[in-house]
Design a protein around this nucleic acid. Structure first.
Lengths: 149, 149
DNA sequence: AAGAATGCCGAGCTAGTTTATCGGGATTAG
DNA sequence: CTAATCCCGATAAACTAGCTCGGCATTCTT
């Protein structure tokens, strides 16, 4: 039940971009250094993020990456879906798999995974990058993320 | 964000055992056949379940496995934890890892994963095997599992 | 007592995935 | 022109998931 490093690194990288949203493009090397991630691995991670339209790139010297939208408008769930595929504990409840499992006409366990999937999506889609970096400004440090409902 | 086949098969197998809870021990071959799982792979799955005390075994001819407790007293979360390890989207929020991440004194993303972990545990620990097989008896078929709050 | 049905268990194996690394090209600021 | 940066396909190393094998131990049935 784990995220891969790709997903984890991706969310961390997007968080850095959110912190510097108004500061102009941030180069990948900077992010790699700060988050202690292999630069070349990080390249592979931002590629799909850019293709998915979550970030923009500026080429050449003084170039780098910026969020394509303000932090309040980027949900963690979006990032995770781009890097990890559909959020689902088992394959048969991913995407638009509306039919029941092939193997069993009435799969008893399906309901478990549907419910788990829904709750996972709910959590990840209610937290935006703004929520994540908000904790950084809040010096109490105890604030629960995403509790503003 | 997927369960491994081990976890999925394990929950399916336990569901079968729940269905036949009062019928005496069910042999593994029977479960393997019904659920279309490799018998020898299933052997490896029930081994940790037995060691964890979730099921009992009866050796010899007419032997097999039974739930160690009635279905109402076995949570899906227990099964998943035995087969997949701690329920946590990233390693650093698994188990009793109370300290923040080693790499960053104040990891901004940690809160996301803690919240996701808590919700996942909540779902899996509120569904018992009795809830799962209950749907089998309820012929409306539309009943949401675990909605009895 | 024999034989069949079962559980118990360590070892190995294969294909795929994950996590990088390499090498080089394209673009742009200064 | 040069350094900094993004772009991107190919490859490699390590790991893991998902089985498979072989054989022993126990118990029921005949």
């Amino acid at each position: 039940m784990r995220l891969s490093a790709k997903g984890e690194y991706g969310v961390r990288a997007m968080t850095i971009l959110a912190l510097y949203f108004r500061t102009g493009p941030i180069p990948l090397r900077e992010i790699a250094r700060r988050e202690n991630i292999s630069y070349q691995f990080l390249e592979q991670i931002v590629l799909p993020l850019r293709r998915a339209g979550l970030i923009n790139s500026v080429r050449g010297a003084k170039g780098g990456y910026t969020l394509a939208r303000p932090p309040e408008q980027i949900k963690v769930g979006e990032i995770v879906r781009v890097l990890e595929g559909p959020i689902a504990p088992v394959e048969c409840v991913a995407d638009g798999n509306e039919e029941s499992c092939a193997r069993s006409p009435a799969c008893l366990t399906r309901g478990i995974w549907e419910k788990l999937r829904d709750r996972m999506e709910q959590v990840l889609d209610e937290i935006t990058l703004a929520d994540v970096i908000c904790v950084a400004n809040d010096k109490t440090g105890k604030t629960k993320i995403g509790d503003g409902r």
